[in-house]
Nucleic acid binder design. Structure first.
Lengths: 228, 228
DNA sequence: CGTTGAGTTGACCATCGTCAACAGGAGTGG
DNA sequence: CCACTCCTGTTGACGATGGTCAACTCAACG
């Protein structure tokens, strides 16, 4: 029965496909191929021909750029509902790797583009998502360019918490499926500096480090640091 | 005569309006209000209701975000052909100030949005621009997060050169209408560090500092630094 | 000719990076 | 079951890159 899968998809409301009417959803579903990736598996590399776009349905993904000498900048983390392909022209501008087992809806970029051409409000949705991502990227520039190490870590935790909150995750426990190295590469720091900042926040009882995450004990204090 | 101004506009090919047919151009022109800003004049502030969108026709503009304690991050510089309003929802996410006398086509955001709704390929153009901006913002994250002071300055100069090149500006002389402070706030550095990096490049004959700009003397060497 | 503001340069210092040692958990194999 | 490795993360000691503070030059402008 066409449409049956997407219709019951939990992440649809917060995703690209949330913009679609039922009959359009069926069209989109016809193009989608569900794909799984194992932990650590690369979905695609940076600067290769972009053949697909993706909608993350479960798990989380790191998106990164590499410099020739190996320095790495994580440009974002994708979580369920996120769309990969907003800024993909002919070639990918970043690489993507599964942080944990990940499932996606994978689309041929060509077929997806063709559908978009005939569905202005899908295009509109993509535009709105791209605008929002652009705004987040600018916020990240402020964080990396003008904040101290501790502020960066706190902003990161509060930002993640906000994103997970969209899935009514227990909002004081922030899952951290990424390594310290990923966090460091996202914040323009080293792993040691991230570790020290987290330890310090733990010592001060502002957070509690738990397996694969942190619990935010003193949100007011954290927000005071981030608002500075 | 409708359409006569836009039709001969030099920046149109590289701008949003380049996507439009002649009859659409006339519609757009009907909405446009030409406005001038003096040097240093603020076009709009951060986090205020976004009532207009803008297309820069001459001069250049700094776009910045402020932290409550006054730290500033320049998130970009707009030059002729650039569109301000890609990432503006109900409120502005950055402030904008003229670096030199600036002229723009100013549009009511509402009227512009209405036109966009009826013109899918204008929407498409905006989406492509937003994607491109997103990709540039990610590149900027790499520069700020993972590059040394000297590399940042070199990347900045080469990046600006590339943008000015779209207007067949003499491509080895890069105009710098912004102050050292603006450059520093763009690169996540201080004015002193920027000044020192530029002086060093000058001493090494890689660049020549000229009034309101630099001449790139040894592009190969600069590119070697940036490619690192 | 004094004032102002941008830019440069120097001396010193702090934040964060580097290098290294260590802890603890997961997986592996004797 | 224990020893072993491997990997991630933590912590400490030290150092370098870039920030801070201050003095100075220079051009623009009245």
């Amino acid at each position: 029965m066409p449409g049956s899968i997407c219709e019951h998809c939990g992440i649809r409301p917060s995703s690209v496909c949330g913009a679609l009417e039922q009959h359009e959803l069926a069209e989109l579903e016809a193009l989608a191929r569900p794909v799984c990736y194992a932990q650590r598996q690369q979905m695609f590399a940076q600067d290769e021909p972009a053949e697909s776009v993706y909608n993350v349905t479960s798990g989380s993904v790191r998106l990164y750029r590499l410099l020739p000498d190996g320095r790495r900048q994580v440009v974002g983390f994708a979580i369920p509902g996120d769309f990969l392909g907003l800024s993909m022209s002919e070639r990918t501008v970043f690489g993507a790797e599964a942080l944990e087992p990940v499932t996606v809806c994978k689309f041929s970029r060509e077929a997806f583009a063709h559908l978009v051409d005939s569905r202005p409000h899908l295009l509109r949705r993509l535009y709105d998502l791209a605008s929002h991502e652009l705004s987040l990227a600018q916020e990240q520039m402020v964080i990396i360019g003008r904040r101290t190490a501790e502020e960066r870590v706190v902003c990161f935790l509060l930002g993640l918490r906000k994103r997970w909150a969209a899935f009514n995750h227990n909002s004081v426990t922030v899952p951290l499926p990424m390594t310290r190295q990923d966090i460091a590469d996202f914040l323009g720091l080293t792993i040691e500096t991230v570790s020290r900042a987290i330890s310090k926040l733990g010592r001060e009882k502002a957070i509690l480090v738990v397996p694969d995450g942190v619990r935010l004990l003193d949100v007011a204090r954290l927000e005071a640091i981030a608002a500075r």
